[in-house]
């Protein structure tokens, strides 16, 4: 297994201490609060988390698509050695859809309903490569073939509403990959699709990634999708990364109580489970975050130190990084094995 710290792996994008906040009339809402990660060239990093964890805002921050009242407040985003946060809007426009592309959850709302699929793919070539409309359309046809759309010639002239959900997502992918981006950001790309179509789209994205050698940042809530497509995984909770590891380590040996809880609460179709373990309570409101560890109010192991002080994301020496006091020398409680001991002592129903 490649280690992330491996020196000969080139890093395509490095996110350092990213802070994105929304300034509402109720005060500052810290959606992303000090997130660090990097994506090695040709690899896929999955960011997994539940609603409100800040995973999508992280993606939008990289694309510089945060709109008022939101703002990237601090940190740096280095793409191929250049700081994206220092770019002007005009420079960003040259990067978006060219060097970094993004696909979204709902293709119907991200495709333009009044332009044909062909026009929308061709647009990328016209803008970024200065091709004529005719040349661009020819290239667009090639892209439709690449993403496996049947009778691509006819589909060039089709409007988004004439395609099924799976076909629309293929068209989105064609647009995103048109200019051969170095980084593809996929935000819940298969969440709106049925499982048999999801399998088609994930297979397609995996194949294209290998063929084109691009890196990928996959945002998802689905741990199954993560296990099947990612090389590395960052688990986010309430604006912070709580655990980071390569995919095999994360699933074989999860260390953060939240990651463990998430895996245990997932109903599986491939094994029998009597009662599901739960994570008690709910995600804290982003305008009212706990001072200490953000998971402390829901954590079955939480002690006073967890409520009072926020732990750092610390290297565990095995490629794992965990933000939890249990895995530090400072832990003042009894010895715990997070995976075996996970659970709440009293009734978990409420």
């Amino acid at each position: 297994m490649d280690n992330l710290k491996d020196n000969d792996t080139k890093t395509i994008i490095k996110v350092d201490d990213l802070q994105t906040s929304f300034f509402t009339h109720k005060g500052e809402v810290k959606a992303v609060d000090g997130v660090h990660f990097d994506v090695p060239a040709g690899k896929t990093l999955g960011i997994v988390g539940e609603s409100g964890s800040g995973k999508s805002i992280t993606a939008l921050s990289i694309m510089r698509l945060i709109e008022a009242p939101g703002r990237v407040k601090g940190g740096s985003i280095t793409f191929n050695g250049e700081d994206l946060l220092a770019k002007s809007e005009a420079e960003m426009r040259r990067i978006r859809g060219n060097k970094i592309s993004m696909i979204f959850q709902e293709p119907m709302t991200s495709l333009n309903p009044v332009y044909t699929i062909g026009d929308q793919i061709a647009e990328s070539y016209q803008i970024h490569q200065g091709l004529s409309k005719k040349q661009a359309l020819e290239k667009a046809l090639g892209m439709l073939e690449l993403v496996g759309i049947p009778s691509p010639k006819a589909r060039l002239k089709a409007y988004p509403h004439e395609l099924s959900g799976g076909m629309r997502q293929r068209a989105m992918i064609a647009i995103a990959l048109a200019c051969n981006p170095e980084l593809l950001i996929a935000d819940e790309p298969t969440t709106a699709l049925d499982v048999t179509i999801q399998a088609q789209i994930l297979g397609l994205v995996n194949d294209l990634q290998k063929d084109l050698g691009m890196s990928m940042l996959l945002i998802t809530h689905d741990l199954g999708v993560v296990a099947e497509t990612c090389d590395y995984v960052a688990v986010m909770y309430a604006g912070k990364i709580v655990e980071y590891a390569d995919v095999n380590t994360l699933f074989a040996n999860p260390k953060h109580p939240y990651t463990v809880g998430l895996l245990k609460s997932l109903p599986r179709h491939d094994i029998d489970q009597e009662e599901l373990e739960v994570i008690r309570g709910m995600v804290p409101r982003p305008d009212d975050l706990p001072n200490g560890c953000r998971f402390a109010p829901r954590c079955p192991f939480a002690r006073e130190m967890c409520v009072e002080r926020l732990p750092d994301l610390e290297d565990q020496g095995d490629g794992n990084q965990v933000r939890c006091w249990i895995h530090t020398d400072q832990w003042d409680g009894p010895e715990v094995n997070v995976r075996d001991d996970y659970g709440y002592s009293e009734s978990t129903q409420s």
């Binding site: 499982v195 048999t196 999801q198 399998a199 741990l223 993560v226 296990a227 699933f251 179709h269 491939d270």
Partner: peptide, 25 residues
Amino acid sequence: KTLLSAIPVPDPTKKKEQIVLKGDV
């Protein structure tokens, strides 16, 4: 069988045989 094989399993060590259907419903 297809439906069952299409669901991603949250376990990267389980490399299963996946049946991928052609086309839409």
